[in-house]
Design a protein around this nucleic acid. Structure first.
Length: 602
RNA sequence: GCGCCCGUAGCUCAGUCGGAUAGAGCGCAUGCCUCCGAAGCAUGAGGUCACAGGUUCGAAUCCUGUCGGGCGCGCCA
């Protein structure tokens, strides 16, 4: 139960009562009246701005209206006090009993606490990673993977029907370059003595783009399946020669992409990411998806053949005007119209991506979320414009841009050279620090802020490491529960039993404050889901964990505040119920992150 | 030149639909372990929310402009 939503409903009742009594005018718009936590807890448990927002329309002074509202709100059993403060806030304090009931609710729900019906089962598509299938994933991809995956889980928790999707860019120049690079490995594996720089000259762009060791496997796989059929051997000199492109490239490309996608899937599995739908750009093109989408543009008069102005501020050295098929993106909020066809007549990446989103819409997703690297920022407007155009305004696309991850080791940046094919892979990092640490840390910043990832700091066992601190809280609770088995039967301290326990002994201010914080978990889930911001969960968990640790520490000074008090069974049971509640809420949050709560620290 | 993102404590960052006296960690200062819950804890100092206007009961938050940083800007994805 989202307590703020609960009291917002009560406020609505009060407002309609007042309208019926003639104290408020008919047809008052009450949308802006909300029930929220006060900024300062000393003001109370919940607060409403209703009097201030409605005063003008009601023709009353805010504080006068607040008086009337407060009197009626006070009539509810749960509301202990209702005071007017500042410009017209109504601060309410809720009965201790109400909070203890929330704890009972948590114990009944377990890790399902915080589940919400907010989404109402609406379908949402979250597309993330979507890295080119040209090699293993590196650390940068890890952030997008985790951000997308956690956002998907968060939306599921908030009641949406979520599909996790990966768009495979298996058409276009990049995968052709991959095929060339794989072909080189194939020829080498056949035993051909081909010089790398000589071969590079034959490649498109005169460069052998992918030189990592990981392509050796593709070369071998090609030999296993096709033997030497993809190359010719000069009978006289015994040298291997390259066949014409159309004879080998489609085959090599297909095998290489297949292999690379296996690699990508394995890397994602290591991170605990499992996407359900893999949409192939090539298949989309082959089954006419692009033609369909662009026909739609043509029908609606949203495309035309024209010439773009040269980009300003950039040296137009090799620029020359060329007529292209353009999409009227500027009619949908973009700055200029965008090309759908290249000068050679083939589709641009944008055109196929329009088809991709059109396809998603037809599969029933009017709500779509894409997670991209920040370097794709310039692409957002045109894609949103395209989604609006292709769905006739019914579809909505939110793009989460992930900023760079600065990989560090003991305060020093880890050097990565993409040119030499030496970059730190996702797998390297996961092997080093573990999946849970990577996942949690990737969510400790807003997606659009730079993130420092220090391999040493993230495994440090100290308060400034949020992963440790949150996990430690959970482990401490599990440890107390284990110890409690020396005092009670396992059945007596099982969550189902604790849910029935008498909690009246929970009277300490810090204990009640802890319960209040737990009770704000459903609201945290809902607001984070609405904002599409999973990182808020990390801050909530850190906050809850430190509140728990503070209470634990008080037990050092004052033995009467400890969780296990010998000879005082009822009090101890109540406190066990409380910390079990904390463990559930932490586990519930970690589940959203795909992080396993630990039983003990090692 | 244009567009997008960002600018909050010495440092790294939170900040809920616009809400009251702007928060956390690190660092700093002070106090606290012969044992019973210290892989530490408690308390405190520290701010022109980049700057200047505007919107209103109320602005770190919304709008306009300026300054500073990052990213992007036809035939790459």
């Amino acid at each position: 139960m989202n307590i703020f939503r609960y009291f917002r409903a009560k406020l609505a009742d009060v407002l309609s009562e007042m309208t019926a009594a003639g104290e408020l005018p008919e047809g008052l718009n009450t949308d802006r009246a909300g029930v929220e936590p006060p900024r300062d807890p000393s003001h109370g448990d919940i607060t409403t701005n209703a009097a201030m927002v409605l005063a003008k329309a009601a023709g009353m002074k805010p504080r006068d209206l607040a008086q009337l509202l407060a009197a009626r709100l006070l009539a509810f059993d749960e509301v202990e006090t209702a005071e007017i403060a500042g410009p017209g806030f109504i601060n309410m304090r809720l009965a201790d009993e109400f909070w203890r009931d929330r704890l009972t609710e948590i114990l009944k729900a377990g890790t399902a606490y915080g589940d919400s019906a907010l989404g109402g089962g609406a379908k949402v598509n979250v597309e993330y990673v979507s890295a080119n299938p040209t090699g293993p994933l590196h650390v940068g991809h890890a952030r997008g993977a985790v951000v997308g995956d956690a956002l998907a889980s968060l939306l599921e928790k908030a009641g949406y029907d979520v599909t996790r999707e990966y768009y495979v860019n298996d058409a276009g120049a990049q995968v052709d370059a991959l095929a060339w690079s794989a072909y080189f490995r194939y020829l080498r594996a056949l035993g051909a003595e081909i010089d790398e720089t000589e071969f590079a000259k034959l490649c498109p762009g005169g460069e052998l783009q992918y030189r990592g060791e990981y392509l050796k496997g593709v070369g071998k796989a090609l030999i296993e399946e096709y033997g030497d059929k993809l190359a010719d051997r000069d009978e006289v000199h015994g040298e291997w020669t390259i066949r014409s492109v159309e004879d080998w490239l489609p085959t090599v490309r297909a095998v290489a992409i297949d292999r690379m996608m296996d690699l990508v899937r394995q890397d994602l599995a290591v991170l605990g990411v499992e996407q359900k739908v893999f949409t192939s750009e090539r298949e989309l093109v082959e089954r006419g998806g692009v033609d369909e989408a662009l026909d739609l543009f043509a029908e609606r008069g949203l495309s035309y053949t024209g010439v773009l102005d040269p980009p300003k501020g950039k040296k137009p050295d090799d620029w020359e005007p060329r007529p292209q098929l353009l999409f009227k993106a500027s009619e949908f909020g973009d700055d200029v119209d965008r090309p759908l066809k290249k000068s050679d007549g083939s589709w641009t990446y944008f055109a196929t991506d329009v088809a991709n989103h059109w396809d998603k819409y037809r599969r029933g997703f009017s709500s779509m979320i894409n997670v991209w690297g920040a370097d794709h920022g310039g692409y957002v407007k045109r894609m949103q414009a395209a989604v609006k155009a292709v769905t006739a305004g019914e579809g909505e696309l939110d793009v989460k841009l992930c900023q760079m991850v600065n990989l560090m080791d003991g305060g020093k940046p880890v050097k990565m050279s993409k040119r030499a094919g030496k970059f730190v892979t996702l797998r390297d990092v996961v092997d080093e620090v573990g999946k849970d640490v990577v996942r949690f840390i990737m969510l400790t910043r807003k997606n659009d802020a730079h993130l420092d990832f220090d391999m040493q700091k993230v495994t440090e066992q100290s308060r400034d490491n949020p992963v440790f601190y949150v996990q430690y809280a959970h482990a401490r609770i599990r440890s107390v529960m284990r110890k409690a088995q020396e005092l009670f039967d396992a059945g007596a301290i099982a969550p189902e039993t604790l849910a029935k326990a008498n909690l009246d002994d929970l009277t300490d201010t810090d204990e009640l404050a802890l319960i209040r914080n737990m009770a704000s978990w459903p609201r945290t889930v809902e607001s984070a889901a609405e904002a599409h911001e999973a990182h808020r969960i990390a801050y909530y968990l850190y906050d809850l964990a430190s509140q728990f640790h503070a209470l634990w520490n008080k037990g050092n000074e004052d033995a009467s505040l400890r969780f296990l008090i010998p000879e005082q069974n009822e009090l101890t049971i109540a406190r066990l119920a409380m910390i079990q509640g904390v463990a559930f809420v932490i586990a519930s949050g970690l589940k959203v992150f795909g992080v396993t709560p630990v039983e003990e620290m090692r």
